[in-house]
Design a protein around this nucleic acid. Structure first.
Lengths: 325, 325
DNA sequence: TCTAATTTGTGCGTATGTATG
DNA sequence: GCATACATACGCACAAATTAG
């Protein structure tokens, strides 16, 4: 490991890691040049170079004939962050920007996309390994990624993942698609009582089926009938139906179809659209949306990075009730 | 032997052959400049050129005072592209995806964002220098970036830039904001005759003022009055007004205000919204949009990279006429 | 006070990559 | 392609400061 790094950095890292681990405190004596030389099998001068670097950074001081001592614990950990998203879309805007803002300017963040391609996913991770201090991974519906993740050299975080089995192994902030859908439907129960049948509309290849599980649970408990469809294209709308629509393209189909059938969302049938955008506030008199707070998600991820403890955080959801339900 | 080849290719081939022979692995040190110089009887500069090429291809990295090391064994990559966008937004989705699709698999692309921050812009470019074969830059309203661009080691392309003074120096594909706005308005002249006064609504800090120039030119020629405003927030709409709206947030304000004043876009007043999205097809009965074709822009940029000739290409615009005008 | 051991500090040589005419 | 200057990395030899006995 780290064949290609300058040797003196071993000394720098030894001390900085010690300070970050809290094993070195202000005033502590650190090993002498000869002790370091022995420990790492380096020449005296290489050790001296590392210690001089630390001295220049103001982290240690030297007393000739006595030793080296820690005088400051301000190590300014410079994170280099590898950020892997699934795809570009409008919601990444809020997520990325709020993350960048919260993480601060002393950090460098490199962003990549795997576009749900398993090969790209693996290649990007393998190529990035050992080049970053921190890895933030938004995976797709990939199975068996644990070995890949555990091979990574630095700290690993999961962002908005579909992998409940990885909970507890890595710090993460994510939507709980099942819980969010279930709880949102329960919170809208009074409105939903005007309808009979609920549809989950999403592409099963990419989107998490947990949403459908949440819908199923709700429908069984409160006696609605339900179905899973992958698109609403060319579909006739019937009275009493509610469509939970993931993709905006489907939302447009639905509204055009409603217009053609002379039906109004929120009256003869209902719409809940996943993920809020400004245009949905005024679209067709207001589209009810069920959305996770991507700005909050970015902020939360930034704060996780500065914590030592392993944490699994559910990102908050919000049902924006408008006229379409 | 190979007298017709550039000499620096000896070095490139030495390393690439080594990797393909499995005699060089990731992390391995390769010979120093002086060792190569001796072995192949070349000048230091020639060796340096070869090693720089390998570095730009992402195959090796250099550590001053230490040596050169293999960091990637992907030898089939032809171009390594540094792609710098201004910000994440929904239109980057089409642009990025069509570019990636068109550029093919023998290329690796790293994507960055400067978010209109000049410091970030300069830092990213300086950090990237010498590490890529190709640089594609989408700048903001930054002045005096010529020295920065000309310092770059590889081929430089401009994407959707606001710098007419750089035309002809670098190959580029871009919207011509002035021409696009002017021509689109001319093409919609018959519809516009129902109105009297045209507003350009955009934030002058970030958005290009060329749009307003196009509007001005059109209005002078065809006798419309006109104005520049930075937002429509809290604004009363008057009959006969047309709003050319850049930001979707302003579009929403406008539609809410129209509703409050009991006015309908396309009747008492008009709306042209910049940049098309699916939702605008059905929003308020259909919003007329003026949009550049971002998919085409991505394709065109990909094709430019495979050409040697310097070209400046205007990306095509499209006016999607719907009910709001 | 002296001495030996252990500490840090410095000068010089040779290697590396980088930048500029 | 050549020459030169420069920053970084590492190692050897020797100098200077401190401490314990």
């Amino acid at each position: 490991m780290r064949k290609n790094q300058s040797k003196y950095k071993l000394i720098v890292d030894h001390v900085i890691d010690g300070i970050n681990n809290r094993t070195l405190k202000k005033g502590d004596r650190i090993p002498s040049i000869n002790e370091f030389r022995e420990k790492y099998n380096l020449s005296r001068d290489t050790v001296f170079a590392g210690l001089s670097k630390l001295k220049a950074k103001g982290i240690i001081e030297s007393n000739p004939g006595v030793g080296y001592f820690v005088i400051s614990t301000k190590t300014e950990i410079k994170h280099r962050i590898f950020l892997l998203f699934n795809e570009i879309n409008i919601f990444k805007e809020d997520l990325y920007n709020s993350f960048i803002e919260a993480i601060g300017t002393t950090t460098s963040v490199d962003l990549y996309f795997h576009n749900y391609n398993r090969d790209v996913f693996e290649t990007l991770i393998n190529e990035a390994n050992h080049k970053y201090t921190t890895y933030i991974i938004m995976s797709g519906k990939f199975m068996g990624i644990e070995p890949l993740l555990s091979s990574l050299s630095g700290r690993v975080f999961l962002l908005d993942h579909f992998h409940p089995q990885l909970k507890g192994q890595y710090s993460s902030v994510a939507q709980d698609f099942e819980k969010d859908t279930y709880e949102a439907l329960v919170s809208g129960l009074e409105l939903l009582k005007n309808y009979k049948h609920l549809f989950m509309v999403q592409k099963e290849d990419f989107e998490p089926e947990e949403r459908f599980n949440g819908l199923t649970e709700f429908c069984k408990q409160y006696n609605f009938s339900y179905d899973y469809i992958s698109t609403v294209k060319n579909r006739l709308i019937a009275k009493g139906e509610v469509y939970l629509v993931v993709n905006d393209r489907d939302l447009v189909y639905l509204l055009k179809q409603a217009d053609a059938q002379n039906m109004t969302p929120g009256r003869e049938f209902g719409i809940i659209s996943y993920n809020d955008t400004v245009l949905k506030e005024v679209l067709a008199g207001g589209i009810t949306t069920l959305s996770t707070d991507f700005k909050q998600m970015g902020k939360t991820m930034a704060s996780l990075i500065n914590k030592r403890k392993l944490e699994t955080i559910d990102n908050p959801w919000k049902l924006n009730v408008r006229n379409s339900l």
